[in-house]
Design a protein around this nucleic acid. Structure first.
Lengths: 268, 268
DNA sequence: ATCTGATTCCGTACAGCGTAAGGAATTGCG
DNA sequence: CGCAATTCCTTACGCTGTACGGAATCAGAT
């Protein structure tokens, strides 16, 4: 259970996020030239988080990676909270800014979701950054813009599309979280998905032998997970399928709302 | 920005979660009788988190509330991570274990979502507990059981319902998060939603004057938020509406999948 | 060439955190 | 009465983010 809460000063973060290249003029100020830059600090911080997770992200760790003292970072960044804001936005720069709609909006929406999901799995710490308060950096905004472009093709009113956009974000984040957890568990224990889950189930069976009687519907819900098509899919594949199905349900709803306009070649 | 990472020992957490009343036998062990109990510790911790947020949740703070030293807690709970696991599950005890389906499964599902959402708003720190790794305590399981009961009324296959359940959880959590953020911002700045948002927009306008040209679709997406029906709804009301609409889209998809079986009196 | 003032960077320090280690106090059982 | 187990506390360690003050570096005015 990992938490990043409280976040930083919104004004300072916004200035840093959108300042980017900073005033183009050459620097003519006295004093030693900065050996680092905001971008360098953020990049180093992202590396630290990618490698060691959010728990390993400390100012000292980032500074060590840059060969500086931890206090040196504070000339570039107001504090750790704002640094996380910057990291969060920067990571979203890896995503495309638009999606072709040759195969219809539904395919484009699915691609958008897949890309975002992949980003979360590349940088799992993103999922531990509270998106409660919208940081609203340029890169994250670009992702939103791409989604907006896809959704407007439905012809639906903006109010519906706002709801759809929020729902899509939620589904992708939630799904990626589950998947990231499985990876983490696998890495931590050295045991593969299926075995880990079996071990977990066994432990639960020890500690709560009356599980099946207390929660019959839950058991029924998770029963038959192997699917009817013989081959028992791997745990990761099943998670992938569940995620895709949830997404499909939402897109079905959206397509129904769009009425006559089809979403293009339906992927199912 | 506080972080709770790494989570606790799953085995220890599971034992504590499902032990509950513990072996019913009278205690006949030597040594001083425990003045506290696991339940008392968890209850105190929940109080601390409710009042001061997740940042205020420290072992010392919990111990102070109980009039003990921080180290005394470790005789009841293996560590902070496991304590958070227990808190998380205990909070879910506030939710009902089943939902009547007199008005059809759709109304029941909506009620389930509303209750869960209300729980998250009562205990916002729940949203900062990473549900990446399923803690799988009895109370959380009860919530899942309630949802399963609702969903099976659709007559759909378990695989579809698993996806629907996951999606519903994601939507409720995501929506509650946005709402909780607005409250937090309002409380922190003393400014009401609408004004805070206006201030934020103004600040963004200063720092990124070319916003409208760079992100025209996003602007169009959030434009006309006041709705066509004259009265400009409050920010919180709009969030509520957006959340409800997202939920409705998903339920539409589910209803479509259920084919002939209607979800009962459609709430919209 | 020198001074001035701004800027970068670092060393130290502090309060807070989770918790390991060990000792004091309390109790039921022999 | 020991004995052994259990609860609870004190102390301490290493870690965190960061406030503070000083040292080093440099541009431009003198």
């Amino acid at each position: 259970m990992s938490i990043i809460a409280g976040q930083g000063d919104a004004t300072r973060s916004l200035a840093l996020l959108w300042g980017e290249g900073e005033a183009g003029g050459e620097r003519t100020a006295p004093g030693p030239k900065p050996a680092l830059s905001v971008a360098a600090v953020v990049a180093a911080a992202v590396e630290v988080a990618d490698e060691g997770g959010v728990a390993a992200l400390s100012m000292r760790a980032v500074a060590d990676r840059l060969g500086r003292s931890s206090m040196a970072l504070y000339t570039y960044v107001p504090g750790k909270a704002e640094l996380v804001d910057l990291m969060y936005d920067r990571a979203h720069a890896e995503l495309p800014g638009a999606y072709p709609q040759d195969d219809g909006w539904r395919a484009a929406a699915t691609a958008w979701a897949a890309d975002l999901r992949a980003l979360y799995l590349r940088h799992p710490w993103l999922l531990q950054v509270s998106y409660a308060r919208p940081v609203l950096g340029p890169c994250e905004q670009r992702v939103m813009e791409a989604l907006a472009g896809v959704l407007f093709a439905t012809g639906l009113p903006a109010s519906t599309l706002r709801a759809a956009a929020a729902a899509l974000f939620d589904l992708v984040r939630g799904g990626a979280r589950t998947r990231a957890e499985a990876r983490l568990a696998a890495a931590a224990t050295g045991v593969a998905d299926t075995e880990w889950w079996a071990e977990r189930a066994a432990r639960l069976g020890e500690v709560a032998p009356d599980f099946a009687e207390r929660f019959p519907l839950s058991v029924r819900l998770s029963a038959g997970e192997a699917g009817t098509d013989g081959a028992p899919a791997s745990w990761e594949e099943r998670m992938e399928a569940t995620h895709a199905a949830g997404l499909a349900l939402l897109l079905d709803g959206l397509e129904a709302a769009a009425g006559g306009r089809p979403g293009g070649v339906s992927p199912r």
